[in-house]
Design a binder for these strands. Sequence first.
DNA 1: AAATATTTTTAGTCTTAGCTAAAAATAAAA
DNA 2: TTTTATTTTTAGCTAAGACTAAAAATATTT
Lengths: 220, 220
Amino acid sequence: MFTHAEENYLKAIFHLEQELQGEVSTNAIAEQMETKPSSVTDMVQKLADKELLSYKKYKGAILTAAGRKTAADVIRKHRLWEVFLVDKLNFHWDEVHAIAEQLEHIQSEELIERLDRFLGSPDFDPHGDPIPDQHGNIKRTEKKLLSELDKGKRGVCVGVKESSSDFLQYLDRKKITIGTKIHVLGKEFFDGSMMLQVGKDQFFISKKTAENLFVQIQES
Amino acid sequence: MFTHAEENYLKAIFHLEQELQGEVSTNAIAEQMETKPSSVTDMVQKLADKELLSYKKYKGAILTAAGRKTAADVIRKHRLWEVFLVDKLNFHWDEVHAIAEQLEHIQSEELIERLDRFLGSPDFDPHGDPIPDQHGNIKRTEKKLLSELDKGKRGVCVGVKESSSDFLQYLDRKKITIGTKIHVLGKEFFDGSMMLQVGKDQFFISKKTAENLFVQIQES
DNA sequence: AAATATTTTTAGTCTTAGCTAAAAATAAAA
DNA sequence: TTTTATTTTTAGCTAAGACTAAAAATATTT
Ligand SMILES: [Mn+2]
Ligand SMILES: [Mn+2]
Ligand SMILES: [Mn+2]
Ligand SMILES: [Mn+2]
């Protein structure tokens, strides 16, 4: 139906739209896609012709319903394949993104339906991100950044914002993964760093780390 | 490493080379790939530049060791994915080819190693074709076409030459699949048709059918 | 051996998706 | 409100991989 390039653009725009809560600029897309703004202008105009997004010169792009559905389908495939790689092939959660980036473009409705069933229709991928359903609906859960928790609060890790290998391997060393209980023992106003209790261990994390970990608050 | 187009050409040339036992012509490649001879000339020259095949104008192409290895890797991936689709996702053997045609281009050594292990390192794909190993070696088995068997001989179906949906579905209706025992009750010299016993059933098949079924002879 | 047919290559065009450099529009600063 | 800076678009180029039409080489007939 669509080329890999088109799908990658739609996916990027979809993510940026959430993040920025509105239309996304040429430059923002270029940065996300690691390409040049002029290339983005070209592609955005093509996608507008195909009515996958609406676009006004100098104003930015916003997905149409059709574009949003296509993007959600690609994201669904990406995340289902990530589950496959981790659950079935025993990949580590920091190794799967690049492969899923390719697998997400395989075209076959039947394949994805069967893969979904084979995996037990998971709701979240290995990074805690929700998997859109067949209709493109995404379960929005009420999660917060760890950095938003105050001293004394408890939460369960439900996802990561960044999923670079560096960050995920750092989390592994700290024994933090999806489902891990985290207790905020202290919070420094000066630099936003935090003292955590995770299992038996206590340690400091930086503001940057706290801003890249999603937690669900545990009422106590 | 290589583009989808390059990989598809190498695979086609690999298959033709076996079939024709020697260098393959531009036209033969064009027919296999369902493209134009002029397009083939272009690509063959590019592949020759990359030393994946050797090629002399008007004489045809023959793979180098590097080209043969690359082709075998693609075929390995194709056939492993077919096993995955049939064994794990319960696809029927006539539905998997088009999807494997896409999956064979996913680039990740690690993925294929793990997939192979996950599938129990199968030796054959769902159509009875041998799966090359990591080094590109293919187990050549002594199989014959059913049409080569004489009256009274017995064989086990070990593969199909054609794997079109039409043919595979016909075989299903006749209850013939990989592993099925076949007894040749009679053979007509006039048109090459055969009378078979398969399980409790007896029926005629055409010469064309007999020429597209591979069997391993059962010594009795 | 010459004529004809077939195969293969070349030349030129198209589309997709990228790039750079320059121009135009918009935003921010003085 | 000019001037300056930033963002975005346009114009023109490139490479891959397809195509058609024409030319050249090879094969087959007569
Ligand atoms: Mn991708
Ligand atoms: Mn993910
Ligand atoms: Mn293919
Ligand atoms: Mn097969």
